[in-house]
Structure formats: structure tokens, C-alpha cells
């Protein structure tokens, strides 16, 4: 049952991601990406990573994609000259890169499965992990406290970068 749910959510995410990169209209792309975030959040819930699922929706769907939509609307991308996009010079190269990556990593994955590196059903049944906010908080503010502090510096840098870049005059 959980496996079926995960397959449904994963397929939703994958299909939405494909649609997002192939849509011509940036707003449609953004909305399909939101759909992908929901698919992934569902997948995280099935994987019992509840906190990650909630934060996925909160941060990605609730903040980042709204920012994208806001910028798209700000740029007024309905105008035809912005929607028109010439075909890439050599689309085959891009497709080849994606397929090549999928092939190489897929073969590596299959090899790992053959070597028995992943736990089988019996071993998985014994796995237990508390994905609650408390467990994540204890790890985040214990083991990874320095990384957390560094992240805040990163965000500060991003704020400065965004403000300086969007100033009317770049000089």
C-alpha cells in the first residue's frame, strides 16, 4: 500500500517535472513545478519524513514559487516577444546529456541493487526513524549547529546580493 502510494506520488512528481521543463508559458511551467513539489511532499509523507514534507510545501510551494510567479508577472511575460523562444542550437546535445546521465547513474544503481547494497524487505521492516520536528531539531541544533549558523550567513549574503542587483542603477 505505501509502495503503491509512493509510486503514485513519484510518478506525479516526475510527470509534472517533465511538463514543467517542456511548457512554453513560464506560468504554466511554474504551476507544474508546484505540482511536482506536492508530489514530492506526498512522497516524503509516505517515507515518514513528516517535517521535511511540511517544510517542502511551506518553503518551496509557499514561498519560492510565489516569488517566481511574482517576478513573471512583474516582467509582464504575457507579451509575445518574451514568450517566443527560439529553439536551442543543438537540442540533441541537451537530450543526450540527460539520457547519458540517466543511463550511467541507472546502471550504477542497478549494479548496487545486484550487489545487495540496499536492504531487502525483511531488513527494511526493522528500520526505524523518527522524522518528527523534535528529532530534526535536536540534530539540527546539536550536531549541525555550525552548519546552521553558516546557513544564516549564506542567507544574509543572498539578501545583500538580491538588493544590490535589483537596484535601479547598477553603477
Amino acid at each position: 500500500m505505501t509502495t503503491a502510494l509512493f509510486v503514485i506520488f513519484g510518478a506525479t512528481a516526475l510527470a509534472s517535472a517533465l511538463l514543467a521543463v517542456t511548457r512554453k508559458n513560464p506560468v504554466a511551467s511554474a504551476m507544474w513545478l508546484v505540482m511536482m513539489f506536492f508530489g514530492l511532499a506526498g512522497g516524503y509523507v509516505v517515507l515518514e519524513a513528516y517535517f521535511v514534507a511540511a517544510v517542502q510545501v511551506l518553503v518551496y510551494a509557499g514561498a519560492i514559487m510565489v516569488l517566481f510567479l511574482f517576478v513573471i508577472m512583474l516582467l509582464d511575460l504575457r507579451s509575445e516577444h518574451l514568450m517566443e523562444e527560439e529553439a536551442p542550437r543543438m537540442p540533441i546535445l541537451g537530450v543526450a546529456a540527460a539520457v547519458l546521465f540517466l543511463a550511467v547513474s541507472g546502471i550504477a544503481l542497478l549494479n548496487a541493487v545486484d550487489d545487495g547494497m540496499f536492504p531487502d524487505a525483511a531488513a527494511r521492516a526493522t528500520l526505524e526513524l523518527d522524522g518528527s520536528a523534535r528529532a530534526i531539531g535536536e540534530s539540527l541544533f546539536g550536531t549541525w549547529l555550525l552548519a546552521f549558523e553558516v546557513t544564516s550567513v549564506l542567507l544574509l549574503g543572498a539578501i545583500f546580493g538580491a538588493v544590490i542587483l535589483t537596484k535601479r542603477r547598477l553603477t
Partner: peptide
């Protein structure tokens, strides 16, 4: 839900899509 407050914050944040779209 054990993460009820987070759930509420994340879901209420989605209402903006309707108006924006």
C-alpha cells in the same frame, strides 16, 4: 497531526496562488 502548526502555516501560504493566478 503532530506538526499541526506547520501544516497550517504551509497550507495557508497556498491561498495566494488563487489570487495571483
Amino acid at each position: 497531526l503532530n506538526i499541526g502548526v506547520l501544516y497550517i502555516l504551509s497550507v495557508t501560504g497556498l491561498g495566494v496562488y488563487g489570487l495571483t493566478l
